[in-house]
Amino acid sequence: MTEYWQEISALTMRWVRRLSRERFSMLFTLVQPMLFWLIFFGNLFQRAADTQVTQAPNYISFLAAGVVVMTVLNNGLAGGVDLLFDKENGFLERLMSAPIRRSSVILSRFIFVMTITSLQVLVILGVAFLFGVEPATGLLGVAVILLIGMMFGVGLTAISMAMAFSVKSHGDFFSVLGFLSLPMIFLSSALVPLAAMPGWMSFLARFNPMTWAIDAVRPLILSGWSDALPHVAMVIPVMLVFDAVCLYGGAKAFRRAMG
């Protein structure tokens, strides 16, 4: 057990070290785009978005939940990419030829992605706070938001790793990623509530786990526990199923790739 922990912590530290040396790219590729969405999109649509439709005091407070979950989405879907590079340059083989538990590499990645995502979610909630969006459910609500984010993120990261182990080249990986991520966002309640969508879009959005996550996070920010609890009670089993499916697929892809 101590050996297991030694492996996982050393591998996790590697991701942290890498990130600390890529500060510049971290700032611009991970944090910035999400803040842009919140600050520019949120303020830009302030008057274009009808508060009757969004059911929120202003668009930025409506959008905050969407941006939080989009952060989870983007980080999760990109979570496997470092393993893909490790696979391509032989580093993964080097790790795998060591007497480590096969799961250590995977677990270190989950721990790292989840930690970074949580920090970013907190940054986004902090920036939203500066624009006057105060979470209605307080700190406990923030903790529940993080929990929902983690549950969604685990499944997404598993999808990403499964892809990393299955694709032939990183070109394929990034095309699938681009193909997945925008439709996931538009076919969800991130930008517009389901009720205000064209019928076919809201129909499809209902099958998007992202919608479930956002619909639980949004009342935690906007209205309060009484509105939020039914959604939270729904999203947890949905995410459990989502994670179970993704982890099963991920484990299969991993086993196939590692012969």
Partner: peptide, 9 residues
């Protein structure tokens, strides 16, 4: 080398 040392316990 430190990373590998940990993986070889």
């Amino acid at each position: 080398l430190q990373l590998l040392s940990a993986l070889y316990h």
